[in-house]
Amino acid sequence: MNQWNNFSKGIFKENAVFVQVLGMCPTLGVTTSAYNGLGMGLATTFVLLMSNIVVSMVKGFIPDKVRIPAYIVIIASFVTIVELIMQAFVPVLFDELGLFIPLIVVNCLVLGRSEAFASKNNVLSSAVDGLGMGLGFTLALFMLGSIRELLGSGAWLGIKFIHGDGMLLFILAPGAFIALAYLIAIMNRVNRRNA
């Protein structure tokens, strides 16, 4: 497979959120604004990229039966590193994302890529795969965050377009579910037409 296809499949054809419907908890939980979605997406991308690289490096060393616990340890280490770094340098964003940062560790997407891709491919392919998947995830979160922020508070990336409130529903929990439902439906349609 050439590296460009390998990279772009994570963004379009196998997009984690729209197509594989993985990692739904942070997708719904932190996308109250475009900025939060972007922050969460990039944090996840970092973990995905690093864990993919390390898993593909050590895959020969780890016996089959204990590979899942070993992968979990590797992923959890990178999650903790992200936690510490964000706490130190972007404390405001860290407060906003809160619980969902440690929860990257149980994001099925991360363990899924380690198991399904990095454990079978070389370091370069795994890195490209992790980056593509992560950026696809980031894109989805950023889109959902933008939609919810635009409709819910009439702003984008913190820049206000209207006076007062928007449709508050979209900032609240129900709006997250409904906005995501329509986004997936639209993506289904687009993908079907391209297929």
């Binding site: 060393f61 780890i62 016996p63 204990v66 616990p69 070993a70 340890v73 590797i74 959890a76 280490s77």
Partner: peptide
């Protein structure tokens, strides 16, 4: 394998 992975990560 598990010991080495855990040691390096901690």
């Amino acid at each position: 394998a598990l010991t080495v992975v855990t040691l390096i990560s901690s």
